[in-house]
Design a protein around this nucleic acid. Sequence first.
RNA 1: GUGGAUGUGGCGGAAUGGCAGACGCGCAUGGUUGAGGGCCAUGUGGGAGACCGUGUGGGUUCGAGUCCCACCAUCCACACCA
Length: 823
Amino acid sequence: MQERYEFKDIESKWQKIWEEEEAFKTVEDYDKEKFYVLEMFPYPSGKLHMGHVRNYSIGDVIARYKKMEGYNVLHPMGWDSFGLPAENAAIKNGIHPAIWTDSNIEEMHKQLNSLGLSYDWDREVATCKPDYYKWMQKIFIEFQKKGLAYKKENPVNWCPDCQTVLANEQVVDGVCERCKTPVTKKNLSQWYFKITEYADRLLAGLDNLPGWPDKVKTMQRNWIGRSEGAEVKFEIDGSDKELIVYTTRPDTLFGVTYMVMAPEHPFVKEFTDGTEYEEAVSAYLAECATKSEIERTSLTKEKTGVFIGKYAINPVNGKKVPIYISDYVMMDYGTGAIMAVPAHDQRDFDFAKAFGLDIIPVVDVEGVDLDNLTEAAAATGKMINSGKYDGMVNTDAINQIIADLEEKGLGKRTVNYKLRDWLISRQRYWGCPIPMIKCEKCGWVPEKEENLPILLPTDVEFTGKGDSPLTTSKTFRNTTCPCCGGPAEREIDTMDTFLDSSWYFLRYCDAKNSEEPFDKKKVDYWMDVDQYIGGVEHAILHLLYSRFFQMVLHDLGMVDKEEPFKNLLTQGMVIKDGAKMSKSLGNVVSPQEIQEKYGADTARLFILFAAPPEKELDWSDAGVEGSFRFLCRVYRLVHEYVTTIRGDKTVGDTIEIRNEADKKLNYAINATIKKVGEDAGGRFNFNTAISSIMELVNEMYKYKTGDINLELFDDAVNKLVIVLNPFVPHITEEMWEALGHTDRLYQTSWPAYDEKALIQDEVTIVVQVNGKIKDKFVLANNTSKEETEAAARQLDKVKEALDGVTVVKTIVIPNKIVNFVVR
RNA sequence: GUGGAUGUGGCGGAAUGGCAGACGCGCAUGGUUGAGGGCCAUGUGGGAGACCGUGUGGGUUCGAGUCCCACCAUCCACACCA
C-alpha cells in the first residue's frame, strides 16, 4: 500500500480490474430475489455534467449496497440517442448525426466508467441503433393495430423561419429556441397516440404507487386533470343548431347571462358569414391568429371578445342570452363553448364587467353581499333565483339538475380531462421512422413486420431549411403497399424521442434479443423497476408516457406488470452561488476538472454528502476539499494500521471487549453499520450515512491513541472499509486489498451488526420542570420509572426548582426524560 | 391566479413529539514544522448572567424545529381547463 493516496493510479487500476473480472455482469437467476436499479438514461450530448454525476452516484450507491445485501441487482445504462441536437450539429458542422452521436456516446461512456459506476455494459442500449428502433417500430405497429394510433390534422407549433414544426419543449417563451423567431400555429396532419383512452387508468394507478413522491403524483393528477360535470344543450334562436357546453357547475344554470364560444369553434363562421357581424368577427379572429404565444400568455386577465349576433336559449328557464366569441375559451377542452355565469366564475365575471353584461347570483354564499359583487362568489351555499331548486344546497342541486336534464334529454353527466392525445410526429430526420405507408387504395397501412426495421436513409441533406431532411432522400419515400402491392409512399415524419424512452427499461431486461423486443419471462423477472432515479423535470412527460406504454404493453400481453416504476426518487438540481449551473452565469463546474484534481471517489462522496438526494445541492469548492481530506484521513488510518499498528502481528479470531474504550469503539462500529444500512438502503439519506461513517473514523482516531485491542481495531478497520465501499468504490477496494484480502469488495456481503453492542450501560436522563430543562444526569440503562424519578429529585437544581411549588404531575419516560409539572 | 415544496448558526445541513445545531465547511487556539502548507488535538448559536434561541402570530401537548390553523418570504410546476 502506497503511503500517499494516489487517487489517479488507484481509480484506473480498479476500473480496469472490474472490467477484466466482469464485476458487474448480471444474469437472470430466477431463484434469487432481484433488485432493479435504474437511472434515467442520458442524451449523449458529449459531456457529463454535475447533474448526471449526482444522478448516477445515487444509483450506484443503491446498486452496490443492494448487491452487498444479496440481491441479484440489475443496473444498466444506455443512450437516449435520437433527437434534435445531433441534427443541429449536422446542419452546423456538416457531420452526419450518426457519427456525431456515436462519438459522443464513446466519450460519455468513458466518462461514466471513470466515475466507477457499476453498470452491466452488456445490456447497453442506444435508441438510435437499428437493433433498438426495429423494435420501436414493431411496438408502434402493435399500438396501431390496437387502434391507439391515428392521424389527424391539427394546429401545431410552427417556426416560420426554420420552416418546421417544433415540439412544445422547443418553444421557449414563445420563440423558436434556435432562431428566436416567434412561433405560430399551423394546421398539419400528424400522428397521435390515444393516451386519453388511458386517462382513468393512469389516474387510478397513481394510488398504487406509494413509493413515488406525492409531488410527482400530484403533478400527474393535475396534468391528467379529470373533472366531473355535465354537457348541456342550448338551442340557438333562429337556427336548428344546438350549442353544447361543458360545465362543472350545472347548479348555476339559472345564473347564465351569456354564452362564449372559442374563436375556432366551427359555428362561428357559419353564424356570422354574410351578416353585419362578419367584419367584427373576422377582425377578432385575425387578432387571435396573430397573437403569438408570448402575447397570449403574458396578457393580463383583460378579457376581449365579440358579440356574434346570435342568442342561445337557456334550457331551464327559456331565457335568451347573447353569444360571444372570446379567446378565454379554448377549442380543445370540453366542447369549445361555455355557458357564462359571472356571479360565480371569476373569468366570466371579468368578461361581464368588461362588456357590461348582467350578473345574476344563484347561490347564496355566506358572508357575500350578492347585490354588490366585487368578484365571483365561487364557494358553496344555498340555491336562490333557481325556481324549484331554491333552498337546496348547491352541491346537492348539481346532481338533481343533471338528473333532470338527462330525463328531458337536455344534457348528460360527463367527465372531462385536460390530458390531450399525444402528438408523436416530428418533421425531423434524427428519429425513429414511423413504419406507416400511405396507399392510394388502402389508406394508411403498417409496414410488414419482416421488412422492419425501416432504416433511416443516408442520402439526405441537412440544411435546416425547408422540409424534413428525409424528403431529400431519393430512396426513402417511394415504396409498395404492404396490402395491395401497388405504389405507395412512406410516412416521412419520425417519432417523438419520448417514445424511445418509454420502454428502454424493458429492453435492458433482454437487450440483445434479435427475435422480439424482449423476452416476456426475463422482463417479468426483472420488472418492475425497484428504484428509479432522475430529475423532477420528467415528472410529467417521460414518467407519464412510460406508464402509458407499460399499460398498453400489459394489455397486449407483453408484460405482466401494469406500472413500470415501483419507487421513484427525484433528485434535486446541482446549483452554485444560488443559481443553476449555466454557461452564461459562468458558474459551471465540470466533473472532469473535479476528477482531475481530487478523483472520482471525492466527487461522488461530496455530491452524496452535501445534501439529501431530493434537495438542491449547493456546490462548494471548500466542501469538495473537505471530502477529499476525509478520504485522505481514512487512507492514512488504514495505512498506519497495515504498516504499524498491525504490521506483521497476527490478528486473533476472537474479539474480547476489555474496557470502556473497547466498548465505546465496538458500539461505534455497530451503530455505524446499522445507521448506514438504514440510510443507504431504505431512506436514501446518504448525507447522514456518510456523516456516521465520519463519526466512526473520528472514534477510531481517538481510540488508537490509547491501548489498542488489535482484534477489535482490525474489525473496525475492515468494517469501515466495507461500509464506505458503496460510496467510494475505488479507494475502498485498494484498502481492502492492502488489508490482505484476496476477494473483492464488490463480492462482499454487507456486515451484520451486533444488537448487543448497541446496548449501553448508562444513559443520560434529562430533567425538566414544566418542559424547561433544568439538569441532566447519568443513570444505569433500564432503571425503573420510580427509581428514575427518585434519582431526579435528588439533584440540587431540581430541588431548588421544586422548592415551594406543588408538583401536579410527573412524566417519566425511562432512559430519556423526567418532567415535573408544577403549579 | 391554482397546486406543491421549503424556511434551523457565518455556510451546507442533523434531529421515531423528548438534551436543537450531529457531520462537514469556515474560523480560533495549541501541538508538530526552520517557515508555510499539511497533519494531530481542542474550542466554536446569542447573552456577563438568570436565561434567550429553529420565518411571523396563534393553537394542541407534561413537552413542539417536528402536529394543527393563519400569515410572510423564497423556489418549482401548471397557468383563462369552464
